[in-house]
Simulated assay, not measured.
Amino acid sequence: MNLKILTIKVVLIFGILTTFFTCNGQNTSKNLDTPEKVIELGETVSKLDQKILLIFQDSNNNIWFGGNDKGAYKYDGENLVLYTDKDGLIESNIWGIQEDRFGNIYFDTTEGVSKFDGQKFTTLEIVEDSSVENEWKLEPHDLWFRIGWNNNGPYRFDGKRLYHLKFPKNEIENEFISINPNASYNPYGVYYIYKDSKGNMWFGTSNLGVYQYDGKEIRWMYEKHLTETPEGGSFGIRSIIEDNDGYIWICNPKYKYKILLDNTKSNDLKSINYQQELGVKSKELESLYSMSMTIDNDGNLWMATYDNGVWRSNGTELIHYPIKDGETDVLLFSIYKDNQDGLWLGTHNAGVYKYNGESFEKFEL
């Protein structure tokens, strides 16, 4: 009798457990089959704004456009989608676009940095603390940002947070202040950021020359002709590029710079050890300042000027490409080389231009 009761109890328990796991398994299967709700961001539009300063191509070959107060455009070859602050961008005026090793896209603005993972935008946390402003570091996968153009020093992103770093004071600062005691802008403001083939970071400032950081030391260089034009205006360091022979070009192609080894030690800010050599020979060079530069796969140096078109140096001659929109001179901001060695121009007043092998023509969808 006791044995029968025990058997019945075991059967009942087994049945209850079987029912539980069966139901649980059905629920799990149902959850797996239920797709997650994806929020569609952005608005599909038919054309670009006339002011497109920046072009960037990501690892999936999407083309991104920015540099106005409208937001960031993404073009996948068929559709053009506009993302704005309504979609989560910290602001709609984009001043820089880059990608990390995981495929996330980052947008540099005057208000901060937005990260786009393909589904949503998030704002990066900024560490503004005097205790870390001199803790310069350089890791292979760091990203660097300006966040506007009026900050003393760049922002380094280590994958989690943005750290605001400060440039060491240089000897030109006091001279600048004495000449411009009421300047409304920061002479250390970062105009340009560039990473060379050795992983060194270069920073062009508005009025106080160039800083270089190799992960160990910060060095500095200043040549008046790189910052101030022959007409007396202040141009700032807006473009830096390394050519295939390892020379550094800065703004004006009259000279190129060979960076030399320097094993000296000092507690003060050291100057970059370099050798200045003649760059491109041309009568137009005295007033030729590049807003942006790139090197194509054949080693040609391409330079975009503000109001004097594009210039290409093949090592022996300088070729000029005037850029016109009808009878109007196109005002250039950037030149960009894509993943296929194609060349694009970002402009202030005429949308986007692309090189067709002979000239630059307006890009139309």
Rank of each mutant, 00 (worst) to 15 (best):
A183G: 10
I94A: 03
G118M: 05
H141R: 10
P154H: 03
N180E: 13
E173Y: 10
D108G: 11
F116I: 04
K120Q: 05
D85R: 08
L165W: 02
F176N: 11
E99I: 03
E175M: 10
D85N: 13
H164V: 05
K86L: 13
E171G: 08
K166D: 06
Y163T: 08
N170R: 07
P168F: 00
I90E: 00
V127P: 03
E91D: 10
P181K: 04
S130D: 13
E171N: 11
L82T: 06
N151G: 08
S131E: 13
K74G: 07
I126L: 14
K169S: 09
A183M: 10
W144L: 01
L124I: 01
D87E: 11
N151M: 10
Q119C: 07
W136D: 02
F121R: 00
L143I: 06
W149Q: 12
Q98D: 08
N182L: 06
N152A: 11
T109A: 04
G96R: 02
L165F: 04
D129Y: 06
Y106P: 10
V81N: 13
I94Q: 04
T84R: 00
L165K: 00
F176I: 11
L80F: 11
E135I: 12
W149G: 11
V132W: 08
G148F: 05
P181Y: 01
P181R: 03
W149H: 15
K74V: 15
D76N: 15
R156D: 04
S178T: 09
D87V: 07
G118H: 03
S131R: 12
L165H: 03
N134Q: 12
W144S: 05
E133W: 12
V81P: 07
P181L: 05
Y155C: 03
N79R: 15
N182A: 06
K137D: 08
I126H: 10
K120C: 07
K137G: 07
E78F: 09
S131Q: 09
F121C: 02
D87P: 05
N152T: 14
D76R: 14
I94E: 03
E99Q: 15
W136V: 03
K74P: 12
K74Q: 13
I172K: 15
K160H: 12
W149A: 13
W95T: 12
I105R: 00
E125I: 15
K120W: 00
G77C: 08
F116M: 06
V113T: 01
N170G: 09
D85H: 12
W144K: 00
P168W: 02
W144D: 04
T84W: 03
Y73Q: 01
K120V: 05
L138S: 00
P181I: 03
S131V: 14
I105K: 02
E111Y: 14
D129G: 01
E135S: 14
Y155E: 07
D87I: 01
W136L: 05
W144C: 01
N151T: 13
D142E: 08
R146F: 08
Y83P: 05
L138R: 00
N151E: 14
L124H: 02
L80G: 10
D76E: 15
L143T: 00
T84G: 04
G112Y: 05
